[in-house]
Structure formats: C-alpha cells, structure tokens
C-alpha cells in the first residue's frame, strides 16, 4: 500500500461520509461492550476487578486443573508453570520462558478459556487466575494483587526476546512505549 493512498483516505474521511453504499449501522460504545475484550500490552482496556493468587488457586482447581494438571504442571493440555531454558528452535514455549507480556495472559484466559466454556469466567476470576499462574511461576509475589494498574507492570523475563521478520512492514511505534 502506498502511503499516499492512506493520506488520501484520511483526507476523504475528514470531511463527510464517503459516497459509498453506507449500509453499516452506527454502533455505540455501550452496544459494543460485550465484545470489547481486546487488552493491549500497555493495559488499555483492562476491566475493573481484582484477584489474588489464593483466589485463583480455587478457581484453577475447579475449572482448569482437569486439562492443565494439578498446580499447572500440565496434563492433556500444556503446562502453565515452569521455565525450561530455550536451547533449541523446538524448545517448549512456556509463559515464564517465552511470553513477552502479562496482559496476553489475562486476554487469552478471558477470551479462550476454559476451552469447553470460554467467556464464562468473571473478570475477577480472570484476574485471580492470572495472579495464580504468575505467582506459581514466581513472576509476582504470592500476595500480590492483580488489577488494571498492577498487571501491565509485571515484567516478563523474555520481554526483549523478539525481533520482527521484516522490520519495514512494521508500523512505526506509537508515542506510547510498550
């Protein structure tokens, strides 16, 4: 895509509705709320709520251990605890040895887990499970509270372990430093 095309589009949009079919219906923030679940690495769009590792342990035992094993040790589904060193290209990727952002953990649990019943957890339960998994991995303290303020500040060990394949295709960084 040429940058001039993007500029032209932005200019066209600045004035009035484009002369297209215009068959979409306006959507308000409130109408979107149930779907608006993307959490960004800087914490944007994290919901209200809070959870601790102790609270997460009981949710985990009830809703997660069946697939991920006792204390996140793994069963039919992947282990959630542990950080084996990355010594080969086919090394096992774990939350503690690979995942660069703590927000991804919250986002993924909320959108995709439990596998049999996603979107059934409350935001508090998602914060609690996030706290439990991070604490089991010793990435936060046992008594640390996870919420919209604290979660994005958790430093993941492999945060700087990545590089884009084609840097020229990456959009420029925004003002906010991730």
């Amino acid at each position: 895509m040429s940058t001039p095309r993007l500029v032209a589009l932005l200019l066209a949009c600045g004035t009035a509705h484009a002369a297209g079919p215009n068959l979409g219906q306006p959507l308000t923030h409130a109408e979107l709320a149930a779907w608006n679940i993307h959490v960004l690495p800087d914490g944007t769009n994290l919901p209200k709520g809070t959870g601790t590792s102790a609270q997460g342990a009981s949710v985990y035992a009830q809703k997660c251990a069946h697939c991920h094993g006792e204390a996140g040790k793994g069963a039919v589904s992947a282990a959630l605890v542990g950080a084996p060193p990355i010594k080969s290209i086919d090394a096992t990727k774990t939350i503690a040895n690979f995942w660069p952002y703590p927000t991804t953990l919250f986002d993924f649990i909320r959108r995709s887990m439990p596998w049999q019943a996603p979107r059934s957890l409350s935001d508090d339960e998602v914060y609690a499970l996030t706290a439990y998994i991070l604490a089991q991995n010793k990435l936060i303290g046992e008594n640390d509270v996870m919420n919209a303020e604290t979660l994005p500040k958790v430093k993941m060990p492999n945060r700087d372990g990545f590089t884009p394949r084609f840097p020229n295709l990456m959009p420029p960084r925004s003002g906010r430093d991730l």
Binding site: T44, K87, K93
Partner: peptide
Amino acid sequence: QPAMSYYESRTYAPILPSGKA
C-alpha cells in the same frame, strides 16, 4: 498498538538458533 495476542506473541513466533524469536 498491536494486541500482542496469544497467537502473535507466542504461537506464531518461531525461535531462532540465537534463542531470540
């Protein structure tokens, strides 16, 4: 910003011999 979703930050991030991905 990108979402850094599970599939882009973890799954479809191939590890290189250097250990970076």
